[in-house]
Every structure is written in structure tokens, then in C-alpha cells.
Design a protein around this nucleic acid. Structure first.
Length: 458
DNA sequence: GCATGATCATGC
DNA sequence: GCATGATCATGC
């Protein structure tokens, strides 16, 4: 069955809205436990065509590709995309020799029929309801960013670095791993090193923004205009917007932005950032480009010697979850592989001295994501060590400390390697969490080493 | 001066 | 009440 008009296609797709897959399935496909079956149910039973995996679009005449994708409901009633939207597999041997307009990504995925269904953790697949469908084309601004992303991906393949591709490299369009296991290796044109098979994908953060727009009617605020994006990359635009404030204190920055702040206030830096981006008063989480690209901002305070006084902390560790899951599910892997960091760098005017007030001066920004190599070596080795220690049982000992005692552990600390380590982060000594063996430990989190941070922002 | 564990402050 | 960002304090 084929569709000549988008309106026809849309009408057919709308028939599924509100129904569960069980109600749609005519061929008992849900009984078989095969991958991608939910998409297949829609293809066969709703649209009535044979399953294909050819390079052409699903609806040939309209050049529309069908995507059936899960969303989940958060505790606070907002929706999130459960996954990235996986598009076509990247052929390392052909894609880098094409122009964007002729690329496999663009020819196959320029128009998508996206059907969102609600993933329910306690139910079986047949009971998931379809919430909504949209015929999606990329907003002009997004497309500029996506083109840059595509260029970055193929650029890396051209340089013989297909094996170093990571989702954190790009903003909206990612190169996600796609393969049964680590043996799904493919050859690449400019290197003898085999690379993991990867597919183009719209990042989870991008999909979540789309889901919230469509299902929560959430509006985001963007700082980059289409005119600017046609001239420059998002990175360049950011650099440009921050550049005039180099050497200024936070107060001076605020003053020239006509913004009143209390520098002691926790939201002073974020407030200055949104004002400086031309969208005063916008919470950073509502900035469209940051939200879609999963850009997380972090303030860095350098000492006059260029090194921060403290390591950088992240979220607390759930040790049971840590031990229950593989490396690819691990919080550190996920955080560093998916997150683009916007480091907003300040430097103190004088060396630390107890009781002395110092002033911070803005130095610049750095848009950074951890290289895959580092994730797969240093970060992974910390994961392995923690996993080993957890499996054997953490050795806790109480030692005298000042007037009280402190609890020592044998998790990999700051000397383990120069990138990541594990250290306590809690309210106080009573703020504890369970270890898998039932012992209690002061809440711990993972930290980025300050010397490593200094190296990044140098 | 650094490693290491402890703890504070704020905002949701 | 807790997560998060930030910082303090001791001891080698």
C-alpha cells in the first residue's frame, strides 16, 4: 500500500492514536519475541506493507521514513524520550565521499513520520498505547546544526578516526553504536583499525525536547538565530558571545549586561550566562540549544596557578545499581559519553588565604566532551576497580580524625589515576547509603580530577 | 601541598 | 528531604 498524499498518510497514522499495539496487531507479531517488533506491527497491520530494510524511505512516493519510538512519563508529569532515535547505519566506506545533500542520512531521513508510544515499565509491549504521531521535518535552525554534526562525523571518518566516534562529539545528530556486540566491527577508508558499527541518530536529548514540545507543550528559548547559524557553528557563536567579557569580574559582567546579581547567590553565574546569550531570565535548562544538545554548564574556578582548588563532583553513586549493570549502563560511562560540557572558566586574582575575600575574573569558555579513548581507558579502569572492590566487599575502617572518627574505604581515590576518582559527598557523617553486601557507607560520588580539568581548559 | 574524608549552602 | 555544587579540615 502506498500513499500519494501526506494528508492520506497522516489520516491513516491517526487511526492508531490512543490504541495499544495489541489492538493494532493483526498477525500475531507480538507473540514472537523479535526485535523491532513494535515498528513492524505498525508497518504491517496499520499501513499494510511488507517489512523492508532497504535504503529507500518507507513511504517511497512521499519520501517519508516511519519511526515508532518510546516515551516515558517522569514523576513530575513531564515526558522524556526513552531512547535516541536510531536512523540508518553509517557506511564508513561511502558516506564520507558524499556531500550532505546526497548523503544517506539526508536522503533517507529528511522527512519522518514519528509515532510516539508510551513505554510502561510494568506492562508488556502489547499494552503500550500510541500517544501521538507527527510528520516531522527539521526546523531550519536545527538543520544547520545537524549539517555541522554530519560534517563532524564524516570528518572524523575521513581522518581515519571512525573508531573514536562518540555521541558526545556532536550536538543533535549523533553517531551511536549499533551492533550485537563488540565484534560488530567495520572497516573504514583511512585507517586499518576496525571501528564499531554506528548509526546516525537523533540524540535522546534532542528527542526529549521534541517530545516535551509535542506532549507537554513546553516551549524552549533559543539564543542563536538562523542567520547566525548559517554563518557560524554553535561553538563559534558561543565563543563570540562570551569573548567581550574576558577579564571582567562577575559583577562587572552583570553590570554591563544591566543585570542585578548577588555574586554570592548560587544562580548568579547561570543568570549572567542567559543574559549574556541575549535571553535574560531564561533558566539554562530552558535554552533550546543546550537542552537539545545535552549541554551541561559547569563553573570552573581556577587558582592563579591555573588549577582549580577542588576536584569537580558529579552525582552520587547507587552501588547496587552499579554492580547490577554493565559498563555501557554505568553512570560514569553515560555521563561522559553523552554530555557536552560548557565550562565557564573564572580565575581568582590572588592565592587562597583563609578568611580572605577574593575576586573571580572571567577567562573564557570551553565546550568539551570527554574523548572516547579516555572513557574507554581511564574511566573504565575506575569502573572495573570499583566493581572489583564492591564484589569483594568494601573494606571500611574507622580511624581517629580530629576530635572524632572518620570512615576510610578502599574505593579508587584521587591517586588511582589522573582522570576520575571516587570520594564521599554527603551532608555529614550520618548521611549514608547501602553497599550491595549490606554495609553502610558515607554517600559517595565520582569526581573529575582537578589537574585533568586544568589540562582541559589550558 | 596533596590525599582523603567531611560537611556546608542553596534551591527545588 | 534530598540533590547538587561547593568548600573545609586533618594528617601525612
Amino acid at each position: 500500500m502506498d500513499y500519494k498524499l501526506e494528508s492520506e498518510l497522516k489520516l491513516k497514522a491517526d487511526e492508531a492514536t490512543g490504541k495499544t499495539f495489541k489492538e493494532i496487531d493483526k498477525f500475531g507479531r507480538l507473540d514472537k519475541n523479535t526485535k523491532g517488533q513494535l515498528g513492524h506491527v505498525i508497518e504491517e497491520s496499520l499501513f499494510g506493507y511488507a517489512i523492508n530494510s532497504t535504503a529507500g524511505a518507507d513511504f517511497v512516493d512521499l519520501n517519508v521514513e516511519l519511526k515508532v519510538t518510546p516515551v516515558k512519563l517522569n514523576k513530575n508529569k513531564t515526558f522524556s524520550s526513552k531512547e535516541r532515535l536510531v536512523l540508518n547505519i553509517i557506511n564508513y566506506m561511502t558516506e564520507p565521499f558524499l556531500e550532505f545533500e546526497a548523503s544517506s542520512f539526508w536522503t533517507k531521513n529528511q522527512k519522518l513520520l514519528i509515532m510516539f508510544y508510551l513505554w510502561l515499565p510494568e506492562k508488556s509491549r502489547g499494552d503500550y498505547p500510541i500517544l501521538k504521531n507527527i510528520l516531522y521535518t527539521y526546523p531550519e535552525e536545527d538543520l544547520e546544526i545537524i549539517k555541522n554534526d554530519w560534517n563532524k562525523i564524516v570528518g572524523k571518518i575521513r581522518e581515519g578516526k571512525a573508531h573514536e566516534l562518540s555521541e558526545g562529539d556532536t550536538l543533535y545528530l549523533g553517531a551511536c553504536t549499533k551492533g550485537v556486540n563488540k565484534s560488530s566491527l567495520r572497516e573504514q577508508p583511512a585507517s586499518d583499525i576496525k571501528a564499531m558499527q554506528r548509526a546516525f541518530s537523533l540524540k535522546t536529548s534532542y528527542m526529549t525536547s521534541l517530545v516535551r514540545k509535542e506532549l507537554n507543550h513546553e516551549e524552549l528559548v533559543s539564543f542563536a538565530t538562523i542567520g547566525q547559524l548559517k554563518e557560524k557553528t554553535l561553538e563559534e557563536l558561543l565563543e563570540e558571545k562570551f569573548a567581550p567579557y574576558s577579564g571582567k569580574s562577575l559583577e562587572q559582567m552583570a553590570k554591563s549586561l544591566k543585570l542585578s546579581i548577588n555574586p554570592e547567590n548560587k544562580s548568579a553565574v547561570p543568570n549572567v550566562i542567559s543574559a549574556l546569550l541575549g535571553i535574560k531570565g531564561t533558566h539554562l535548562s530552558k535554552i533550546e540549544e543546550f537542552s537539545k544538545a545535552n549541554i551541561q554548564f559547569k563553573t570552573i574556578r581556577l587558582e592563579p596557578n591555573g588549577v582549580p582548588k577542588e576536584h569537580m563532583s558529579f552525582e552520587n553513586i547507587d552501588f547496587q545499581e552499579w554492580l547490577d549493570n554493565d559498563w555501557e549502563i554505568n553512570i560514569m560511562y553515560r555521563r561522559f559519553e553523552k554530555t557536552k560540557f560548557l565550562f565557564v572558566i573564572f580565575e581568582y586574582n590572588e592565592a587562597y588565604k583563609k578568611g580572605k575575600k577574593r575576586t573571580l575574573y572571567f577567562k573564557g569558555i570551553k565546550l568539551w566532551n570527554m574523548p572516547l579513548k579516555t572513557i574507554e581507558t581511564d574511566v573504565k579502569s575506575v569502573w572495573e576497580e570499583v566493581t572489583r572492590v564492591l564484589t569483594e566487599g568494601v573494606k571500611l575502617e574507622s580511624i581517629k580524625w580530629g576530635k572524632g572518627v572518620k570512615q576510610k574505604n578502599n574505593l579508587p581515590g584521587a591517586t588511582y589515576n589522573q582522570v576520575v576518582h571516587i570520594r564521599p559527598k554527603a551532608r555529614d557523617g550520618q548521611d549514608k547509603t547501602y553497599l550491595p553486601d549490606g554495609q553502610m557507607i558515607t554517600k559517595q560520588c565520582y569526581w573529575l580530577d582537578k589537574a585533568y580539568i586544568a589540562e582541559i581548559v589550558k
